[in-house]
Computed example of a mutant assay.
Amino acid sequence: MPSVLTALLCLGLCLNQRISTLKQSFSKPVIWAIPNFMIPKGKPVDIWCQGTHEAVEYRLYFEGSLSDLKIPKAPGLMNKVKFLIPSMTSRTAGQYSCLYRSGELWSKLSDPLDLVVTGMYDTPTLSVHPRPEVISGENVTFYCRLETATSKFFLLKEGRPSRTQHRHGNIQAEFPMGPVTTAHRGTYRCFGSYNNHAWSFPSEPLKLLVTGDIGNTSLVPTDPTSSPDSWDSYFLTTEAGFQKDLALWDHTAQNLFRIGLAFLVLVAIAWLLIIDWLSRKRTQEGASRASQWEFRRRLRTQRPIEQ
């Protein structure tokens, strides 16, 4: 019996370790920046890396090389750490990623986070043709111009920083929108840049108003004109979505572990019942043999007396 229980215990521990290994191998950490991915030159930025409560070490990578590492102050209580960049420059702008360690195992790398430093060049001017107020269906083109020679221009819409458009050009770049709908309404800014991570000052905001096509506004998503703080809305929503995915994965792993333990308990109960049944069967068979032997012995002792 002790050997059976020992085997079951080892099986349970192996199952727990296997589930934990799968969880750590497939659960990527989440990385994001606060206040957002565009940081004015000289301003600080916090890079957050979120893993699991079991994480005992976090590492931050910049352009593929180890940049910093953190040990959680309260392991088991906190599932994220903060990496501080005290002053954003062209040298600290680039692509970041992170990973974490739980026990002896390392997680996969997070999705890349591209940090951009702004304010590196002069301020570009943004204009729109034919005019800022157009009727739905008209062709609209944005023009971003920067007198200081540059190689690339970026056009962003407030509240939709994930949909950045870029065009190459020395002094000016065109951003044709084609026939616009009410979904194009909103406030736009543009930047000039020599690379993907060092941008100029932002242009003055330009508000595009699309009128007409009222009957289809319920079918086309609209973007209300928002304040500069709306640049963060996409990243806050994305962060919440990633956190929800991590929580869902943790819940799934815990359920698998509970199912595994329940299965082990059922196996142990079944094994104990089988052992008990076999023990009772042996006892009954032994008693039956003893009874038969005693009956035969009595017969042998009684036969001479009867003669």
Rank of each mutant, 00 (worst) to 15 (best):
E54W: 05
I47E: 03
I71F: 11
S102C: 09
S102Q: 08
S87T: 12
S87L: 08
G94S: 06
R91S: 13
R91T: 11
G76A: 03
D111T: 12
K80R: 12
S110M: 03
N79R: 15
A93T: 01
I85V: 15
V56P: 01
D46T: 13
C49R: 02
D68G: 02
L105S: 09
E63K: 10
G103R: 13
L66N: 04
R101A: 14
L109C: 10
V81Q: 08
A55C: 09
W48P: 00
H53C: 04
W106Y: 15
F83C: 07
S110W: 01
S65R: 13
C49T: 03
W106S: 05
P112A: 11
D68P: 02
Q95F: 08
S110R: 04
M88T: 04
P72K: 00
C98W: 06
W106L: 15
L99I: 09
F62N: 13
L60M: 05
S102D: 09
W48C: 06
S65W: 06
V81Y: 01
P86N: 10
E54G: 12
P75F: 05
P86Q: 08
A74E: 12
T52V: 07
D68Y: 07
L113G: 03
G76H: 06
Y100K: 08
T92N: 04
V81K: 06
F83M: 09
N79F: 11
S65I: 05
S107G: 06
P72M: 03
S97I: 04
S102G: 09
T52W: 05
V81F: 11
T92A: 10
L105A: 08
L105T: 14
S110D: 02
Y61W: 09
P86L: 08
L113I: 08
A74I: 08
D68H: 12
K82C: 14
F62Y: 15
E104H: 05
L105N: 07
D46P: 01
K108G: 15
L60E: 03
V81N: 11
L84P: 03
Y58Q: 07
Y100A: 08
G51Q: 12
L77S: 15
K73P: 00
K82V: 13
S102M: 04
S67I: 00
S102Y: 00
V56E: 15
K108M: 14
T89D: 01
S67K: 10
A93K: 01
Q95K: 13
R91L: 10
P86M: 05
S67V: 00
E104Q: 06
S65C: 03
L99C: 14
P112G: 12
P112Q: 09
S107I: 07
D68W: 06
L60F: 04
E57D: 04
P112H: 05
M78R: 13
E63C: 05
E63Y: 02
E104A: 07
I47Y: 01
R101D: 05
L109R: 15
E63I: 01
S102V: 10
